[in-house]
Design a protein around this nucleic acid. Structure first.
Lengths: 272, 272
DNA sequence: CATAGTCCGTATAATTTTTAATCGTATAAT
DNA sequence: ATTATACGATTAAAAATTATACGGACTATG
């Protein structure tokens, strides 16, 4: 019996329960009831199933505090990071400003995104007018979009540009919504997207100039023990890496030590 | 009949369906089946319920493409931004690196977080040893944690520091896991957290020096039409704002025009 | 032009999940 | 002592979901 044997709905509930125990160290039926709108009876059933699953380190009911308390050596059923933890820890007051700092939210045109998505699915090229920050709007060009990507700030479309003869990342919002969006079947298969299919392994270390003590604080914060922190991404996204990790900022506490590249075994042969 | 009348599980499914139609412009029963592990019959029922809800701009079945196509004036049942869109657009290949650039993931000690959470709930002060980047570990101090916060990179605890006589943001990871974590009832109620209960309204504009054309690209990307983009947060989080929005970076495209403050009506009177 | 394949839809009964309604126990507060 | 609130358990009823079978519309293919 594992989480996977359960239905989606109950699995979601048990994962939530698991995270309450992991990060709050405690959980109630009430937590499930409020979050999922289920009955007390169902919440009690969920608890029983959970206790069955967490056989190695089950939480224990504390009649004094009237809650389940996670075992001190509690082993989460499903892994979760600080992001998920915050969801569970921040009890939100809808009305007032959020407890989280707002992020710059980039916009996009629904119709443009959908057209790109359909071009990706059907493997067609589309005609678009693209505006770049430096050179302004072009007169229209054919691109063959292959997938969506994210640099953490905004969503990009990865596409083969016939004009430039290479794969590039485009920002959908900069595509003129009044482009023709004419579609065209590809005369010949697209070239392989080498940068997409290259793994970039980036090794970071505490910024030189930090004292040993400071360096060890940095290691603890980012969760590595040895000399380097290893981060893996695709070469096609490497351009955005420094900004995302703030490496070029004044207060940076990490720096790049080295970068290695290796081909990614394609999931399907000849993945474009 | 609205989304709210449904059970949690079906509501989740219909929201997913709604987002498929919004961002992909198309949807199948198969999408629901794969995502939620339901039967074809149930997926067909979900579609019928959806069609009942989306009475104003219902999607239409296209027998040629064998999918539902969103109406051109499709009105989403539930709002969603680019983040949610990406979840739906990026079909993930578990095995290979993600299509999204990895973020710096900050760590935290489960036990420390749980202890803080329980101190917040019970309104107690705890004794912790805190390590700051500059001055190293202290000898231990009493803090009264009040809530968790996020600056988008990491999770903080907002706490009243008796040592400094003010509220501060602490990084849980910098609390020594071997602190005593001794608890103490508060002798007197905590002072009001003024900065937390102050709304900071930040007005941004395209960075000066940009051409008119560039400025209009920026306006489109961030979704504002007039002179300013209005962003709202809490004064207690304002310190992190510039970094989160990259305003101090070289390539910044927005700059702060002005900032206004106003008290937030407390959800409960005397909210600490 | 027949055939297979894939999408849709419907309808039925069988099964599983969830609820509603009660009851019992332990703890804390008044 | 009484009340309130956690928890637990059990029952029958209701609701959601599945398994299965069937038929229609369209495409692609030999």
């Amino acid at each position: 019996m594992t989480l996977d044997d359960l239905k989606h709905a109950q699995r979601e509930r048990l994962i939530f329960l698991d995270r309450c125990l992991t990060w709050r160290g405690m959980a109630n039926r009430r937590d499930l009831i409020e979050r999922f709108g289920i009955s007390t009876a169902q919440a009690a059933l969920d608890f029983r199933v959970y206790l069955g699953l967490a056989r190695s380190t089950p939480p224990i009911y504390d009649p004094v505090r009237k809650t389940y308390i996670a075992a001190s050596e509690h082993e989460p059923l499903a892994p979760s990071g600080l992001t998920e933890a915050f969801d569970i820890l921040a009890s939100d007051d809808e009305s007032t400003p959020s407890a989280a700092l707002p992020r710059p939210e980039r916009k996009a045109d629904r119709r443009t995104i959908a057209l790109l998505h359909q071009a990706i699915r059907s493997g067609k090229a589309v005609h678009v007018r693209y505006t770049s920050m430096s050179s302004g709007a072009d007169d229209g060009q054919w691109i063959a979009p292959t997938r969506f990507t994210s640099d953490g700030e905004s969503v990009h479309v990865r596409a083969h540009s016939f004009k430039h003869g290479e794969y590039r990342n485009y920002l959908p919002i900069r595509i003129d919504p009044d482009s023709s969006f004419e579609e065209k079947l590809l005369a010949e298969p697209l070239p392989v997207d080498v940068d997409w299919n290259t793994r970039a392994i980036i090794w970071l270390r505490p910024k030189s100039g930090l004292s040993d003590r400071q360096a060890s604080v940095v290691r603890r914060e980012f969760g590595f023990e040895g000399e380097f922190l290893r981060v893996e991404t695709r070469k096609a996204l490497e351009f955005f890496f420094n900004r995302r990790w703030g490496l070029d900022e004044k207060g940076a506490r990490l720096e790049r030590a080295k970068t290695e590249y290796e081909p990614i075994a394609p999931a399907w042969p000849n993945d474009h």
